[in-house]
Write a protein that binds this DNA or RNA. Structure first.
Length: 626
DNA sequence: ATAGGGTTAG
């Protein structure tokens, strides 16, 4: 039960102060409507503050209720005594139009404003600008901007962020250069835009040039940007630097720190932040903090801790909390548990969204629950009125493909209303590798390569397809094409956590002498022992790394084997070996890990690009289905 | 009351 529902049973608010505080507690539009109904006959509603709070509450409530906002607006227009209330309400109303992409309504309000004294109000004119930018109407916004006589730093800043969001990068940069007075928000908008649309280095340059390093938003934009661009290490480095420099992190800063930690799998550091939040009595019920913690724990392999956080949320759990938990379970291959939790969510009347169904479908796909996956794909549309997006189709292709139902997978591609992207073709291709469909796989690879000619994983997959089929001359051809196009295979990298510190292993890269000898000796021993248990290296799976064989003095094995060997030699008795790998684990390393877990009675928890594998007693939590 | 950073999928 939410806070407002509890308060709703009491009588109508006595004065405008009581009304304002009540409105601010509401989260749902229905609650707001009830309060509105109670005071509609009193004069409380005509108080400028009350009316405007209602509009802003409606525009922020779940679902952004534009009709409610418009109704209040027309009521205010009708009561001549509330001109002040109108001035305070228009910014929220215009925001509401922007969020709802209600161009026609927005235009009408704009026209009415131009005819009134409010055209001189900077809040109102900036909100008009913002509304057009929000709707992607950059041309209109530019016209409004040019005609504004009360243009201020907020107008310029709105233009910068709006231009970035519409992909007008040059215009955004020009605005930044030309603006007469820049403040910290201008810099932050620019840093964020450069991160998202141009690249880390340009953002970094601006960040370094800006001498003011005390603003938490600037730091957060940098942290978020590095993570989004695939550099979580640099992101975490900056996050730590921010803390060291004494900047007080807010929820958004923490969330971004956690997101970098989740990508890196640094469980210890994630725990530390959780403890820090606990010490400072920060509530996990506000914002997306709980959701970010659940995500971090899941991605660090600590699914139990993720569940604890989820269960500890004391207020009504919101959709983001459920989604993070569902995705976490799916990531760990806990298909049944994911579906059980989904049903619990439905029983509690929480409305699933498109992300929920992505978690559900990916859970089904990872666990081989083909019928269930089809069922949820069907009801997603029929019962919950959510149209599938490309990623949902991707999950379905994965679901059928993994299960060997290639006809169903290709039918999805034929029938989907959106143009398939390279991810879709790569997914089909992976299934073809698994089930040995060379011709279909070849065709899928060609499509993928057409769409993403510089994506090394397309070449690697195709090469694996040929290698599995014994078509060695084709394998050689692929390698030649890669060389000619200067496409380099993403180097495999695994890390293992030993006593709180991280050790990294790369294929074909020099490591410290001691470390190399430890790994070499241990690997020799392990492989010897496994061979007696019937292990035979599957050379087909290793073939893509053959280039590295020419280098002398380097270990020519997949990085996860090195990490596991190092783990075996160094881990405390009874503790699981936690390994993270940047690519997908290959079949050979998978059987290797299973055998190690039995022969050495050693639990191994391995996170690869897609999911977790828990190896124990000779079996894997994925049931060899991945 | 208007401008900047925020999780979940793949």
């Amino acid at each position: 039960m939410s806070t407002a529902s509890a308060t709703l049973s009491t009588a109508a608010p006595a004065d405008h102060r009581a009304a304002v505080s009540l409105v601010e507690k509401c989260r749902l539009a229905t609650e707001l409507r009830q309060i509105h109904g109670r005071i509609i006959k009193s004069d409380i509603l005509s108080h400028p503050l009350v009316a405007s709070r209602f509009v802003s509450a409606f525009s922020l409530s779940e679902g952004n209720s534009l009709p409610d906002c418009l109704l209040l607006y027309s009521q205010m227009m009708a009561s001549l005594g509330n001109r002040q209330g109108l001035g305070f309400s228009l910014p929220s109303l215009l925001k509401s139009c922007g969020k709802a992409s209600a161009l026609e309504e927005g235009r009408q309000i704009h026209a009415q404003v131009l005819k009134s004294h409010l055209r001189e109000d900077p809040f109102v004119s900036n909100s008009i600008l913002r509304m057009y930018l929000e709707m992607g109407e950059v041309e209109v916004a530019l016209k409004v901007f040019d005609k504004m006589f009360n243009r201020d730093v907020i107008s310029w800043n709105s233009m910068i962020s709006g231009c970035f969001k519409s992909g007008k990068i040059d215009l955004a940069c020009r605005m930044f250069d030309e603006m007469p007075h820049k403040d910290i928000v201008s810099v932050n908008s620019m840093v964020d835009g450069l991160m998202k649309h141009v690249g880390c280095d340009f953002a970094r340059e601006l960040f370094e040039k800006n001498r003011d390093k005390s603003d938490v938003v600037t730091w957060t934009s940098m942290v978020s940007g590095y993570t989004l661009n695939g550099h979580p290490k640099e992101a975490l480095k900056l996050f730590r630097e921010m803390l060291r420099s004494g900047v007080d992190p807010d929820v958004a800063a923490i969330v971004n720190g956690l997101s970098a930690i989740a990508d890196l799998g640094f469980a210890e550091e994630g725990r530390w932040i959780h403890a820090m939040l606990h010490r400072s009595s920060t509530s996990l019920n506000s914002g997306i903090l709980a959701s970010a913690l659940i995500d971090m724990y899941s991605k660090c392999g600590l699914i139990g801790d993720a569940c604890s956080v989820f269960r500890s949320i004391s207020s009504r759990r919101r959709i983001v909390d459920w989604n993070s938990m569902l995705s976490g379970l799916a990531l760990h291959g806990l298909g049944r548990e994911t579906l059980d939790l989904f049903n619990e969510m439905l029983r509690m009347d929480v409305n699933p969204d498109e992300v929920t169904f992505l978690a559900i479908l990916s859970a089904c796909s990872h666990s081989g629950l083909v019928d269930e996956g089809q069922h949820y794909f069907k009801i997603m549309h029929e019962e919950f009125n959510i149209s599938p997006r490309i990623k949902h189709y991707g999950c379905m292709i994965d679901l059928f493909g993994r299960a060997g139902l290639l006809e169903n997978a290709t039918r999805i591609i034929d029938e989907m209303p959106v143009e398939p992207d390279s991810m879709i073709w790569k997914s089909l291709l992976s299934s073809c590798i698994k089930h040995g469909y060379v011709a279909i796989g070849e065709a899928a690879a060609m499509k993928a390569l057409e769409l993403a000619p510089l994506d090394s994983s397309c070449y690697v997959l195709l090469s694996n397809l040929y290698a599995n089929a014994g078509k060695w001359s084709n394998v050689a051809k692929i390698r030649a094409v890669m060389k000619a196009r200067k496409v380099r295979k993403n180097p495999g990298c695994s890390s293992v956590m030993i006593g709180g510190s991280i050790h990294e292993f790369f294929v074909g890269k020099e490591m410290g002498t001691t470390c190399r000898e430890v790994v070499r000796a241990k690997l020799e021993e392990v492989i010897g022992r496994l061979k007696m248990e019937g292990y035979r290296a599957d050379l087909n799976q290793v073939i893509v790394d053959v280039d590295e064989e020419e280098k002398e003095g380097l270990l020519v094995v997949h990085s996860e084997k090195m990490a596991i060997a190092f783990g075996l030699a160094s881990i405390d008795e009874g503790a699981p070996i936690r390994v993270m790998k940047n690519l997908r684990v290959c079949g050979d390393c998978h059987s290797f890990s299973k055998l190690v877990s039995r022969v050495y009675n050693q639990e191994i928890i391995l996170r690869d690009q897609n999911r977790f594998h828990h190896f124990k007693g000779g079996t894997c939590s994925c049931n060899d289905y991945w």
